[in-house]
């Protein structure tokens, strides 16, 4: 082969550049650091209404992403949504009386689970259930309530 050495060097460079690009996409562009941490634990929480929460929606505490929603099921006896969250093992000191709320990022953004820490000594572990939950705010309900209260104010006067 002609210049077989330089061909091989170029191919080596090409492969290195391609792998480097893949690594960059994995580390710099996406959130590999959290997802790769698969050795976390699952906790569940029950909500009356989860709005448009989806599997893989983020779970965060104090604005820091600590995990993601791994499953959403429906309890057909209590008519509640059972949300399973996968929390990264880095965050294994969350108090057992942590509460979970469903928030919306921005006015029309996607919904996520926000955790609020409690004061318990015991911590959440694999299989724990978060007892204190607050459902998603549904815009139509809010507007309905607002109009209703305005109307009743008007009647009182």
């Amino acid at each position: 082969m002609m210049h077989s050495r330089s061909v091989e060097i170029w191919v080596g460079l090409f492969a290195a550049a391609g792998l480097a690009a893949l690594f960059m996409l994995a580390l710099q562009v996406s959130n590999l650091s959290l997802v790769s941490d698969d050795v976390g634990y699952d906790v569940t929480a029950r909500f009356e209404n989860i709005g448009s929460l989806k599997v893989r929606s983020p779970v965060s505490m104090a604005g820091v992403r600590v995990g993601r929603v791994s499953a959403i099921n429906f309890d057909s006896r209590s008519f509640e949504a059972v949300v399973t969250m996968h929390i990264s093992s880095k965050f294994d000191q969350l108090p057992a009386d942590t509460s979970a709320n469903i928030f919306t990022a921005g006015l029309l953004g996607e919904q996520y689970v926000g955790l609020e820490p409690g004061g318990d000594e015991a911590v959440l572990e694999q299989g724990s259930e978060i007892m204190l939950t607050q459902s998603a705010l549904v815009l139509e309900q809010l507007i309905g309530q607002f109009l209703f209260s305005k109307a009743s104010e008007g009647e009182e006067k």
Partner: peptide
């Protein structure tokens, strides 16, 4: 630029599917 990107781009859903 970088933080929002990392927050929203998912390794499996986006990068992996692209590959």
């Amino acid at each position: 630029y970088w933080a929002n990107m990392q927050y929203r781009v998912d390794l499996y859903d986006d990068v992996f599917n692209g590959v």
